[in-house]
Design a protein around this nucleic acid. Structure first.
Length: 136
DNA sequence: CGATTGACGTACG
DNA sequence: TCGTACGCCAATC
């Protein structure tokens, strides 16, 4: 991990939802579904960042939740191109979480995006902002 | 039930 | 300019 881990505001309440996307019980899957929907709409040869998606959803401060959502993208249909989602630095942070980790680079290369050592070349150029391109 | 982690990001030193 | 710290919200140990 990184570091931090100082004050954690110890309060877990009782919201034990579990299975955010496995058991979509009611309509509370909003966040996850929204993330998947946005990621699916990412044009080919384009990439975005967790923060951009979080910002688009309104939870810009909770970019981590976007990452959590992607954690279940593997078993979501249709397939979510999570390989097009990277951190704000343009680095393939989630590469290690892919089926075959190399799949991410492979897909990006196929899309025409150059990847240099787990880092997208000209990330800004390939950056796709849902809040601007998708708009509402 | 409490503490820690986590595919991030921004602020402060 | 680079490094460290904190915050979000939820899941897992």
């Amino acid at each position: 991990m990184k570091k931090k881990k100082a004050t954690k505001k110890i309060s877990s309440k009782k919201s034990v939802q579990t299975d955010p996307l496995i058991s979509k019980r009611k309509k509370g899957e909003s966040f996850f579904e929204d993330v998947y929907d946005v990621v699916r709409q990412i044009p080919k040869g384009r990439v975005t960042s967790y923060g951009a998606i979080a910002n688009f959803l309104g939870t810009k401060s909770s970019a981590r939740m976007v990452g959590w959502a992607m954690n279940g993208c593997a078993h979501v249909t249709p397939k979510v191109p999570a390989h097009r989602v990277v951190n704000r630095l343009g680095m393939l942070s989630g590469k290690a979480h892919f089926n075959p980790p190399s799949k991410m680079e492979e897909q990006l290369l196929k899309e025409g995006i150059k990847v240099k050592k787990e880092m997208i070349v000209d990330f800004e150029k390939h950056f796709w902002d849902p809040a601007k391109e998708l708009l509402l």
